[in-house]
Design a protein around this nucleic acid. Structure first.
Lengths: 218, 218
DNA sequence: ACCTGAACACCGTTCAAGT
DNA sequence: ACCTGAACACCGTTCAAGT
């Protein structure tokens, strides 16, 4: 039995590596069974099925997400945690949508949520406020990162893409995008560091909300 | 040729309806071919393949998203557009992740982006600021809505879920979630209207950012 | 007890053969 | 010209047959 669970663990790890390396779409039970070739399926002895395998893979990923220290400055902590979550999603590019669509309250996830809510409550938010705040931060992290991961042009190619865009699209049809592309080409801005911009918008909004709110104290 | 494109259009429409009704996972070329049964594939005469079909389906969905009027109050407009996008995503529950992962600059999408950037620029933002602002709003809408669509418990069952949670999880292990669940049961708050909370956080942050910024004018 | 390979029920896609 | 059904290369999953 101990060997069994060990082989299961190793299966999950190779599956994770495969997904990170070859892309999630390419991952199939048959390919995984004997990674060189072989059609046979001893995999099913260790893992209930593809669903279960995915669950285990996500469990490993989720464990990489940092939790805040309760009692620390909530704003610093939330900023830290948001970046941690973001880095995990970037590290395992196939993860983000699956993590949401297969969301489950495992022990790891519960501990993380508990710590975040705790950190916010210790920072002076009510439970309701903490829940809303957590949700707003998560929304930004997931929304931004999923878009980023799927954006068709790489950050260092924005200029080139804009230069290609300009002659193809008339100023008459898309006057504002035309101007924006011109500014990108001129180097006025570069689309970078947008993640932190949005995050700080949310965080400073939360801070003001807290100080303005009469019911902020515990 | 006219008949051909008409049949293509009808195919896309039935595919859309099928996805909305039966769920996107259940959609397959074979099922779609002759919706009652039939294994044959005259579908390929009208549509290049599943990828092309998806593209066409998403095109129809994207057309439902409202664009702002340039010159109107940017904050009112952005709020309106965010809600419009959100409603479209809720109406076609399978759409959100696909819309991001298959993002493409169709004419419809370009017009929408151009109008949003234009509305923000007309409202006093620079092009760079407009781009950041748009991205922050989109991130919230997508991030929040994708999470909501995949959340395992329905809004009207939060109380029941919390009541089930309480006895199963010790106060010692998850003290804060325990307390939060208690408050949900007591009816102190209900997790609703979170979407607008996060959206207003972003919008008011943008407004303050604009008024505080020395370079805000055109 | 464990691994194997054939088998089943599905996919997307192609294409020769019919009408 | 259009539709048909068999075929190919893939899936996830099961299971009798081997060792």
């Amino acid at each position: 039995m101990k060997r069994k669970s060990l082989t299961a663990k190793r299966s999950v790890e190779t599956a994770l590596e495969f997904a990170n390396h070859e892309g999630f779409e390419a991952l199939s039970m048959r390919k995984l069974a004997g990674l060189p070739n072989v059609t046979a399926m001893p995999l099913y002895n260790y893992v209930a099925g593809k669903d279960a395998l995915l669950e285990l893979m996500l469990g490993k990923v989720v464990a990489e997400i940092d939790s805040p220290t309760i009692g620390g400055d909530w704003e610093v902590m939330m900023r830290w945690c948001a970046h941690s979550l973001r880095q995990v999603l970037l590290r395992h590019r196939w993860t983000s949508t699956l993590l949401i669509s297969r969301f489950s309250l495992s022990v790891t996830v519960m501990r993380n949520i508990d710590a975040i809510v705790g950190c916010l409550v210790a920072g002076g938010f009510t439970y309701a406020q903490a829940d809303w705040a957590r949700n707003a931060i998560d929304s930004h992290v997931y929304g931004y990162t999923i878009q980023e991961l799927n954006f068709p042009v790489e950050p260092d190619q924005y200029k080139a893409a804009a230069a290609q865009f300009l002659p193809m699209n008339s100023q008459a049809n898309y006057p504002y995008m035309y101007e924006a592309a011109s500014e990108i080409i001129a180097g006025t801005y570069n689309r970078m560091t947008n993640f932190d911009f949005g995050l700080e918008l949310v965080l400073s909004g939360l801070q003001q909300w807290q100080t303005n709110s009469a019911y902020a104290g515990r």
